[in-house]
C-alpha cells in the first residue's frame, strides 16, 4: 500500500489513467446480469468470466458494494424484517386479505377471459345494431317507394316474399 508520501502521487497517476481511459472511450463493458454477479460473488466463475465482471465493476464502482453484500449474505445469520413488511409482501400473491393492503397489486393473471368477454360483447352489439339499422332503412325505402306496409324488411328477413307462409295483400283482401 502507498505510504503517506507517495499516496498522493499514486492517486494522481490513477486519476490521470482514468481520465485518459474515459477520453478514449475505454471501459464500455456490458453490464453482467444478476446471476453472473451472484456467481462472481460466490467465486464460481472461471478466470475469463471473472475478469469481465471485474472490468465492469471497475467502471461501476458503486456496484462493488452489491458484490460485497452478496458475499457477506452467504455466511450472515438471517436478519429480522419488520412484521408489516412481511404481511404486505405476502399479500402481493393470491387472494387479497381485506385486513392487509399491499402497496400495489401485482398484474391480474385472470384478466384473459374478461378481455374475451368484452370483445365478444362489443362484436355482438355491432352486429345487432347493423341488423336493426338495415331493417329500418329497408322499411323506409319500401314506404317511400309506395310499397305496402306488410312488406316490411323485418318480415323479409325471416320470410322472404313469395315463400307462402303468410298471405300477401291480394290474398288477404280476397279472404
Amino acid at each position: 500500500m502507498p505510504g503517506p508520501g507517495d499516496e498522493a502521487g499514486e492517486a494522481a497517476l490513477w486519476a490521470r489513467w482514468r481520465a485518459l481511459a474515459a477520453a478514449w472511450g475505454a471501459g464500455r463493458v456490458p453490464e453482467p446480469d444478476a446471476l453472473l454477479l451472484a456467481a462472481y460473488a460466490e467465486g464460481r466463475l472461471d478466470e475469463a468470466a471473472a475478469a469481465s465482471v471485474e472490468d465492469w465493476l471497475a467502471e461501476e464502482p458503486e456496484r462493488i458494494a452489491d458484490v460485497a453484500a452478496a458475499r457477506a449474505a452467504i455466511s450472515a445469520p438471517p436478519a429480522v424484517a419488520p412484521e408489516g413488511l412481511v404481511a404486505r409482501a405476502a399479500a402481493l400473491v393470491g387472494p387479497v386479505d381485506p385486513q392487509i393492503v399491499p402497496f400495489r397489486y401485482p398484474t391480474q393473471r385472470a384478466a384473459g377471459w374478461r378481455s374475451v368477454a368484452a370483445w365478444g360483447g362489443l362484436a355482438a352489439s355491432i352486429l345487432a345494431t347493423s341488423l336493426i339499422g338495415f331493417a329500418l332503412g329497408n322499411d323506409a325505402y319500401v314506404t317511400l317507394a309506395g310499397g305496402s306496409a306488410g312488406e316490411s324488411a323485418v318480415q323479409d328477413l325471416f320470410e322472404p316474399p313469395g315463400s307462402g307462409i303468410l298471405p300477401t295483400m291480394e290474398e288477404d283482401s280476397s279472404l
Partner: peptide, 22 residues
C-alpha cells in the same frame, strides 16, 4: 430467470434487491 445451478438464491436475491432498490 433464476438458475440454482449458477448461484445460490440468497446471493442472487441480494444482488437483485440492491439493484432494484438503487
Amino acid at each position: 430467470t433464476y438458475d440454482s445451478t449458477r448461484a445460490g438464491l440468497s446471493t442472487w436475491l441480494t444482488i437483485v434487491a440492491r439493484s432494484t432498490a438503487r
